[in-house]
């Protein structure tokens, strides 16, 4: 039961974050929000008895992926300035 409530809360958070990621004007916020979506997703995976997937999502989806986004964004900003 507690799992259910956590799942619902996380699910709603994921969707909110996803909407922020898509619609927020600031790209940096968008990228972070997308990373948070991944992070929350990995919690869902834990709930779903998938620790392997959770680890991978955390390391790759919210970690490396976000870093790559930032590297590229940073590079673009530098070129702009």
């Amino acid at each position: 039961m507690i799992n259910l409530i956590i799942a619902i809360v996380i699910g709603v958070l994921i969707l909110i974050m996803a909407i922020i990621a898509v619609h927020h004007k600031n790209i940096v916020v968008g990228i972070i929000a997308a990373g948070v979506v991944s992070l929350f997703a990995s919690i869902l995976y834990l709930l779903l008895a998938a620790p392997d997937v959770a680890m991978t999502e955390a390391a790759i989806g919210s970690g490396l992926s976000t870093i790559i986004f930032f590297y590229v964004l940073n590079k673009i900003k530098r070129q702009n300035g």
Binding site: P51, D52, A54, M55, T56, A59, I60, G63, L64
Partner: peptide
């Protein structure tokens, strides 16, 4: 839990 992909990451 874990393995090549996670370790590599």
């Amino acid at each position: 839990p874990g393995g090549g992909f996670q370790g590599g990451a």
